[in-house]
Design a protein around this nucleic acid. Structure first.
Length: 304
DNA sequence: CTCGATCCCTGGACGC
DNA sequence: TGCGTCCAGGGATCGA
């Protein structure tokens, strides 16, 4: 599941291998994950990939060069191909002569004889050619990059949301790039229960969470991400960070700090792994368990 | 504003 | 070996 570190890894790999290449032609397979498939076929041929960046969980292929026909230099310079890998997306250059694998839905022939190929069995990903105002508007929907957010900004973000902290971390319009794995890992390191209401988190704990989040993302990038659902970088190498997971995917296994079995609950519709001892439940959650005596009048209504 | 439910999709795990 | 069933999950959408 490509999140920020995996997308960063892939973007860096592509920057090294395909930046500067010109797109010769575009061949599409299934297109239900592409915003406007014909725009890709119409505008991409002839443009060059100037650089590859990460934006949240998106890869941004910045395009340049002459548009096919009437585009002005200005509109072309702001054009980009936006690529979201969803759950199972992958993108890598391969020799054009090599056969492509089963779920390859987009192929971009480059001027060096390689083909940039997008593969995605589940097609939870997304691809869009956007330029000018439309590109700006699209990018504007997303929140701040977690690696760039200041302590002050992060604190204000928490204070202004009454949602659960896990839901907030996953909210791409608040913070762009954090997914289920790194949300759980950060909450574990900062010792915060996933159901804590963001606005109730103290300044001190907020600082701790921001540091945990940033440290973990940097560590994960250094190890080329987590390879869980067969994530591979642009060179086909798996990441190593899955070996460092302390919470994610560790249900019933002992907490690395206190040996208490890790638990799994659903928060924000996602599996959330946490240590019930290190990450104590907020009062609002404990309450439901407390309820000493089920009030006698509370028996099932005699409706039937 | 925030929530849960539902849908999209396919491969892998599991049970028989 | 093969089949059916369940599940994973990012994001959009909708009703509560």
């Amino acid at each position: 599941m490509p999140e920020l570190p995996e997308v960063e890894t892939l973007a860096r790999g592509l920057q090294r291998t395909i930046a500067g290449r010109r797109i010769v032609s575009v061949t599409l397979g299934k297109t239900d994950f592409i915003d406007n498939p014909s725009a890709l076929e119409e505008f991409l041929p002839g443009l060059s990939i100037e650089r590859v960046e990460r934006f949240g969980k998106f890869m941004l292929l910045r395009l340049g060069g002459e548009a096919s026909g009437n585009g002005t230099a200005h509109s072309v310079s702001a054009a980009s191909l936006l690529v979201h890998l969803g759950m199972t997306g992958h993108m890598a250059p391969q020799p054009a002569a090599e056969p492509f694998s089963k779920h390859t839905h987009a192929r971009f022939l480059l001027d060096d004889g390689c083909e940039l190929r997008y593969t995605d069995p589940r097609r939870f990903g997304r691809m869009a050619y956007l330029a000018g105002e439309k590109l700006l508007a699209e990018l504007g929907r997303f929140g701040v990059d977690p690696l760039e957010v200041s302590e002050l900004e992060f604190g204000a973000l928490l204070k202004s949301h009454k949602s659960r902290i896990k839901a907030l971390l996953l909210d791409q319009s608040a913070l762009r790039g954090v997914g289920n794995i790194y949300a759980d890992e950060s909450l574990w390191r900062a010792k915060i229960h996933p159901k804590r209401i963001a606005a109730t988190i103290s300044q001190g704990v907020s600082r701790k969470l921001r540091k945990a989040l940033q440290d973990i993302l940097r560590e994960a990038i250094a190890l080329r991400g987590s390879s869980i659902s067969d994530f591979l970088d642009a060179q086909g190498q798996p990441g190593e960070y899955q070996r460092r997971h302390r919470a994610y995917g560790r249900e019933a296994k002992p907490c690395y700090r206190c040996k208490t079995p890790i638990r799994r609950v659903i928060v924000a519709g996602r599996s959330s792994y946490f240590c019930p001892k290190c990450q104590p439940a907020p009062k609002s959650v404990k309450h439901k368990l407390k309820r000493r005596k089920p009030v006698t009048s509370r028996r099932k209504p005699a409706s039937q």
